[in-house]
């Protein structure tokens, strides 16, 4: 079985820099971006299993990227990682189909386990 693909988007480089190795260690194939347009371009061409995105960014913002991802790949799971200030927007994202939102700062382990869980759900034969 090939590795699940995760695409990360946060305009602050440290988020991707730290998450990418941690998720790769857990067996995921990971791409990380700080520019949301690049993520839209990648999603236009390729399917990912999980999108992890911040909300507040230069246009297109996280919500718009999420909408695009959902249109393009209805099965994609979206996780919002956001600062405390944008919790309200995050709730809106949940209504539009994000699986979960996690407020920054968060434990790396928590996000990794969440991704492991939601990608396990999409397996053909889920582990018992």
């Amino acid at each position: 079985m090939s590795a699940k693909k995760v695409i990360l988007l946060d305009d602050e480089p440290i988020v991707g820099e730290r998450l990418q190795p941690a998720l790769e260690k857990a067996g995921f194939q990971v791409e990380s971006y700080t520019d949301s347009q690049q993520v839209v371009d990648r999603l236009a061409r390729e399917r990912f299993d999980v999108l992890v995105t911040d909300l507040k960014m230069r246009k297109p913002d996280g919500l718009e990227v999420m909408r695009f991802a959902k249109r393009q790949w209805p099965g994609i799971k979206v996780i919002i990682i956001t600062g405390f200030a944008t919790v309200e927007t995050a709730t809106e994202a949940m209504r539009e189909g994000a699986v979960e939102f996690i407020a920054k700062p968060f434990k790396i382990r928590a996000l990794r386990d969440l991704i492991l869980r939601i990608t396990a759900d999409t397996e053909q034969s889920p582990p018992s």
């Binding site: 946060d10 440290i14 988020v15 990682i81 600062g83 200030a85 700062p105 968060f106 434990k107």
Partner: peptide, 16 residues
């Protein structure tokens, strides 16, 4: 506790 390395935080957190 953020300095433990267990967490993801960003500059926005520091500003807040």
């Amino acid at each position: 506790e953020q300095l433990s390395g267990e967490y993801i935080f960003d500059t926005q957190y520091l500003r807040d």
